[in-house]
Design a protein around this nucleic acid. Structure first.
Lengths: 236, 236
DNA sequence: GGCCGGTTTTGCGCTATCGCAAACACCAGG
DNA sequence: CCTGGTGTTTGCGATAGCGCAAAACCGGCC
């Protein structure tokens, strides 16, 4: 089994307050694995047997309805945990995780969690913090879906993606993994058609530049303005 | 300070795995307080100084936008915790909590949390579980808002309220606290007008009976059917 | 270098739902 | 018993965004 370099992950929020020796012990329980682009890491409804820490790449967590519609729960960036089903008391994964880029993850068996938490209570506290933050983000998303129109929701979604996984360019910010109109629609509760229309409009205003599964925010500040615009103060 | 009876709260999920002596110690750090109907317990944005456990009554947690719109994050039922801002690493309350009925709560100062968690690690684990469950519920809500129409969302919302806080009647289930059309609108991302129209329609079909801040599900199963109906399979 | 499949764009009608406004009902208080 | 006020019902446009369908595009692969 590949040895994981402690220094690469010790600074992550998950391990705040954990000593280097403890890190060794924690990492000894993990194995690492590589998932190629577009491969599934786990499926919604499957027995939750492991939890994960993303080292490289990007992972999309999506939830599917009985009728087949999907929403994107979130995009996982390097350094973030995912698949914490058992930590929160679920026997099955509530969503599907798929690598949207070639990705490398650390994998712990669920059985290790109770032992780790007992030896390193900071892990539970850190995880609680993380999950709490995600809960708040979910509430914010609900608030947006309830009170804002599609254009504003898309603006917020892109800004968040840019902050989380944006690559600074000379002029603008590029979202650093492949993302389609459909994906954005599934993040904002709309359809790919509407997303396409809005991005086209933005492109003609010089706010963004985009193509096949690729988006560059050319005028982030202009998009912030859009995002905060009240529903009626529309354009001419 | 009023002494809290251990036996009343020891069975709650929050205290799973905590010994009776430990319970004493935990409860010694709390005080209890009574909030009359329609009084605020804490306000969104205020310094988070305490966390809460609801003993009696019902509390509404709501989030407000800069422009004044509100959504209901959740209704808190007896036995549930709320205002856990600090446990999840927030310095300020992300929502406003208001008693919708005369309510009694236990209050711990935030400063007690680190100490309690250190002495009773089960608390952190239990809280993680709770927060995780709420996170999943939030995702479900986002999924519903993204994929279902208003009527189905209202159906789901009422069914959840009935499960959480329903009082069984001879014929039907009554939601056991005052709730307005506006409240339901704020739970489902619609307007009180639309809620009113839909409830009126349901009433004429004998599915519900409702009045001023009062709702009785007369045919819960019929509402389940509505909730699960696919978007197009509409009525005649 | 041409072909294939997924992605994006765009037109067009449709409708669920909003938004406003007015009329009502009901409970609480005096 | 009357009255004020909050919550509810309902009518009637207005419209944002959906849904379908078709065409254009783009990139990688053979």
């Amino acid at each position: 089994m590949a040895k994981v370099d402690t220094s690469l992950v010790a600074h992550l929020p998950l391990f705040a307050g954990v000593t280097p020796e403890a890190m060794d012990e924690i990492l000894r329980e993990a194995r690492s694995a590589r998932y190629p682009k577009n491969s599934a890491i786990f499926e919604q409804g499957a027995d939750a047997q492991s939890f994960f820490l993303l080292l490289h790449g990007h992972v999309r967590a999506a939830k599917t309805t009985p009728t087949g519609e999907q929403i994107v729960v979130r995009y996982v960036a390097p350094g973030e945990t995912f698949g914490l089903a058992m930590a929160i008391g679920a026997a099955r994964y509530p969503a599907t995780a798929m690598a949207v880029d070639d990705s490398v993850v650390l994998i712990w068996p669920n059985s290790a969690w109770p032992r780790l938490v007992e030896r390193f209570p900071a892990l539970a506290a850190n995880t609680l913090q993380t999950v709490g933050t995600r809960l708040q983000e979910s509430h914010t998303r609900i608030l947006e879906m309830s009170t804002q129109q599609v254009e504003q929701r898309i603006a917020h979604a892109l800004l968040r993606l840019a902050k989380q996984s944006g690559k600074k360019l000379d002029h603008g910010i590029e979202i650093d993994f492949p993302i389609s109109r459909q994906d954005i629609a599934q993040m904002t509760g709309t359809t790919l058609h509407t997303v396409s229309r809005i991005l086209s409009a933005w492109e003609s205003q010089g706010l963004v530049e985009s193509g096949r599964q690729r988006i560059i925010l050319r005028d982030p500040h202009g998009i912030v303005v859009l995002a905060e615009r009240s529903p009626d103060s529309g354009a001419a």
